[in-house]
């Protein structure tokens, strides 16, 4: 029974995907079959084409006919690739080019589980604001300190702990001398130099 795409909270699935093992892996969202051009419609303006590289190897022309039929519909068009062959470099290169021309974004998954995750996440995040990936300020002191100091090459979390406990605040660390740093357990010359470079070398040269 083919129904017209509704407006509800379900992922609309093209009936030709009926035997796709990915369907089992789409969890936490509703599913319904519907007459659509794409393989999955995961939002009002978002559509997904599905392609397994194994299949692509056998029928290289298939995906092009699908893309052609898609035309200019949808705002965000995704090609979900299942990378299930070991010789992936060549097909991915070729598909990248095709998709760039046709305004399609590629997502690569390595297992059905992961592909299912992508599909259900697209639906769940349909109206989600981008706060998750924007810069945030509401982190606690220790986390920021850790991220800041570990951004310096060679500094690990044990070192952060040592720095915090033996020197004190961030500015104490910034103003401490090389000798002082060198005397901390676990600090060698290279690490100390890296830290000094990050803290004391000027941001820009004068040129």
């Amino acid at each position: 029974p083919v129904v017209l795409p509704g407006t509800g909270n379900n992922i609309i699935i093209n009936p030709n995907q009926r035997l796709n093992p990915v369907l089992e892996c789409i969890r936490n969202v509703g599913k319904e079959f519907g007459d659509i051009v794409a393989d999955f419609q995961v939002g009002r303006t978002t559509a997904v084409l599905y392609l397994s590289l194994k299949y692509h190897r056998l029928h290289p022309e298939y995906i092009h006919t699908r893309i052609e039929r898609l035309g200019h519909a949808y705002n965000l068009r995704v090609l979900l690739i299942i990378c299930d062959v070991s010789e992936h470099q060549e097909p991915i290169r070729e598909l990248t080019k095709t998709c760039l021309i046709n305004n399609i974004t590629i997502m690569v998954a390595w297992s059905y589980d992961e592909a299912g995750l992508y599909l259900s996440t697209y639906k769940q995040f349909e109206y989600k604001p981008p706060d998750l990936i924007k810069e945030r300020l509401d982190k606690d002191y220790n986390t920021i300190l850790r991220t800041a100091l570990t951004s310096i090459n060679k500094v690990n979390k044990t070192d952060v702990e040592t720095l915090r406990t033996s020197l004190g605040s961030f500015s104490d660390i910034a103003t401490s001398s090389s000798d002082q740093l060198q005397n901390l357990p676990g600090f060698g010359q290279v690490k100390v130099r890296r830290i000094k470079d990050a803290f004391e070398k000027p941001f820009r040269n004068k040129a």
């Binding site: 939002g43 978002t46 705002n75 965000l76 995704v78 991915i92 990248t96 998709c99 760039l100 305004n103 399609i104 974004t105 590629i106 997502m107 690569v108 992961e114 995750l117 992508y118 996440t121 697209y122 995040f125 349909e126 989600k128 981008p130 998750l132 990936i133």
Partner: peptide, 18 residues
């Protein structure tokens, strides 16, 4: 993965090269 999804949703024009 889910952050990538969110990124593509908000920047439909950004293509991804894998």
């Amino acid at each position: 993965q889910s952050k990538l999804v969110l990124l593509t949703l908000h920047f439909p024009r950004v293509r991804i090269i894998w």
